[in-house]
């Protein structure tokens, strides 16, 4: 338990720093800013007690907000992603009583990982840009940014999940 908590804390700090100090300076094509920090939500161990998960993801998003001067936009988007991650996972795995203690996203087939990451990332980005613009007239810009930034985020996250896969040859 303590080991898991330590890994979690380490991942928390590392991802905040990578996102705010490195990735926030990077713009593909001048405007696409990937949000790798969502990896934290995807790698969070799934428990039946979800209150910790919600609170930790709120704090995580809020740390990103402090560094990038965005008020509470990232916090809101991250909490929503955390809240909807379990129902969406159930939907994709197509069963109600998954053994979550043993579940690891890494061990799932690639197509499931991609579906899961895609749905949640687009949800996250839509809330993120929706709150940032906060104007129905800008819905075109919001959808455009959600799609373009989301695509880059998904590619980055899927790659990082696949690259950190343990004994990947056994799964094939």
């Amino acid at each position: 338990m303590t080991r898991d908590t330590l890994i979690l804390a380490f991942r928390f700090v590392l991802l905040v720093l990578i996102q705010t100090l490195v990735l926030n300076h990077i713009y593909f094509f001048g405007f696409i800013n990937p949000n790798l920090y969502l990896l934290f939500i995807f790698l969070y161990p799934i428990e039946t007690k979800r209150s910790n998960f919600l609170i930790v993801s709120f704090l995580f998003g809020f740390c990103i907000d402090i560094f990038s001067n965005t008020g509470g936009v990232n916090a809101a988007a991250t909490v929503a992603t955390a809240y909807f991650s379990l129902p969406i996972l159930n939907l994709i795995l197509n069963k109600q009583d998954t053994d979550f203690k043993l579940f690891k996203l890494n061990n799932e087939p690639v197509i499931r990982i991609v579906t899961y990451v895609t749905i949640l990332t687009f949800l996250h980005h839509f809330i993120l840009f929706g709150l940032e613009y906060f104007n129905l007239k800008e819905i075109g810009t919001i959808l455009f940014k959600t799609f373009t930034s989301g695509l880059f985020t998904i590619v980055l996250i899927v790659l990082s999940i696949l690259l950190t896969r343990k004994n990947k040859f056994m799964n094939q």
């Binding site: 979800r50 209150s51 919600l54 609170i55 709120f58 998003g61 809020f62 907000d65 001067n69 965005t70 008020g71 509470g72 936009v73 916090a75 809101a76 909490v79 929503a80 809240y83 709150l131 906060f134």
Partner: peptide, 21 residues
């Protein structure tokens, strides 16, 4: 309870957002 906690956190986050505006 999870939904209520989710709502509470969202309200706090949106509060910070509006304040920053």
């Amino acid at each position: 309870k999870y939904f209520l906690l989710f709502l509470l956190l969202e309200i706090i986050a949106i509060g910070f957002t509006i304040q920053s505006h």
